[in-house]
Design a protein around this nucleic acid. Structure first.
Lengths: 251, 251
DNA sequence: ACTTGGTAGACTGTCTACCAAGTGCCATCC
DNA sequence: GGATGGCACTTGGTAGACAGTCTACCAAGT
């Protein structure tokens, strides 16, 4: 009965603090639906009926439609005219393409980050590396994953290019959705690479930063393929009774 | 009075020929609006009122709203809650960021294109180069611009990565919109670079292809800045009575 | 057994009407 | 001149209606 409550807004934008601007309903619906898709409440391939969702979320059809169309544009669902929306079920080459796109985006971000890095940025990056490594060594996967996300996010932010940020964020969410179980595998190496990356950025070495980030993401891609190779027989109906299966990823 | 007619669908997908699937109205509205934005019928900063547009296009508010929201997500308009949509007026650093993002996307596309190029692809690329150069030498700017677009588009297609294709297409439309008057400047050099690029792709030299494409797009970026420097005083209201001013770009 | 034709139900796509709340603007007032 | 109050306009969201289309299913015909 997931009913929508007043959506929380962006965390802390410094300086001018705009007053509580009530989030448009369609936004909340969008968030709620992506959340439900990611955590598996809405299984892949499931037919999403507008009135049903509307009832589920306690809103009318309109906001649901609008959210569904956005989800469609961003590839979360597929809209078949006259029939409705189905939760997107990824082709097997899709993850690979996604990772490839991300490699390009993040590599470029790293290059620009190296170009524009401020002292504070570098300090934060170092801190994140330390924290992340600590999490990893303590076996706190969730913490490590979260920190990893923050690190990558900060680097794209540092690029100062809003388009790279947007695209990377979009790709990242998708990747995290259907590429969940790699985190534990690559923990240690991943943080070693992060350290090298931050070093390159702090030195302002653009090429090296870009190159390091590229290798980093390519390693992740490789890890995915290895994992894929191990998991033979991609059976079409893997888990007959799967509910809130949720796991996250270290890139 | 721009009334919406049945939108044309994708050109020719070989084999299974799906029958005419009537395009949703919101789609046609979206197309119509982008078109009107690009060709200047709807000037930058103009206040777009839903009912007004609805009347203009001969549809009801609903499809217009849905189209506007998509336009908002893609950065063509800015939606101010309670007031309406304004045609986006780009910040001055925006073109630059757009071009930077495109450099990354197209460079990566070129790399992958070099990896996956087939004989037919290369033949088509060569042909396009020839045609484009001919257009340019004949002074047919429009033809050269069109061919240029086809060439770049084909290369991203050749990457085989749908996300790169999507992102690049999105960026490209934006770029073409508010970065129109560079075409003539860079004609000759541009086609020389294209030739080098195609050569690298045909040889399967990924690094060289990526590098060449990067330089190519960077040159365009530079050209933009030079042009910008020449056009001092970016007067806020440049043309008092501009109508269907339309011009295209050679990248 | 396989195709054809028909029927029924379910949803979407679109339209209309309506209301509440927020925004910008203008005239008025100090 | 600058603040204030009010007004018109616009969106955001709701409800209901209706046509067109899609899927599934069943029955009859070959």
């Amino acid at each position: 009965m997931t009913t929508i409550s007043a959506g929380a807004t962006d965390p802390v934008s410094p300086g001018v603090r705009h007053v509580k601007r009530p989030t448009p309903l369609r936004e909340s619906v969008y968030e709620a639906l992506t959340e439900m898709i990611i955590d598996g409440t809405l299984e892949r391939g499931r037919h999403l009926v507008e009135v049903e969702l509307a009832g589920m979320l306690g809103v009318s059809r309109q906001p649901v439609r609008e959210a569904l169309q956005r989800l469609n544009n961003e590839g979360w669902v597929d809209l078949r005219p006259g029939f409705g929306a189905m939760v997107h079920v990824p082709a097997e080459d899709e993850v690979d393409q996604l990772l490839a796109a991300r490699a390009a985006l993040e590599s470029e971000s790293a290059r620009l980050a190296a170009r524009h890095a401020t002292k504070e940025d570098v300090a934060t990056l170092r801190e994140l590396c330390k924290v992340g490594t600590a999490y990893h060594e303590a076996g706190d996967i969730d913490g490590a994953v979260r920190t990893n996300g923050e690190l990558h996010s900060l680097i794209t932010q540092m690029s100062g290019n809003r388009f790279l940020v947007d695209f990377a964020a979009q790709v990242d969410r998708r990747v995290r959705w259907y590429y969940t179980p790699v985190a534990p595998v690559r923990g240690a190496a991943s943080w070693r690479e992060h350290n090298r990356l931050v070093k390159a950025i702090s030195e302002g070495d653009e090429d090296k930063a870009a190159q390091t980030m590229r290798e980093h993401t390519e390693h992740t891609r490789k890890a995915y393929h290895d994992l894929q190779a191990g998991t033979a027989t991609p059976d079409p109906t893997p888990d007959p009774a799967p509910r809130p299966r949720r796991r996250r990823t270290t890139t």
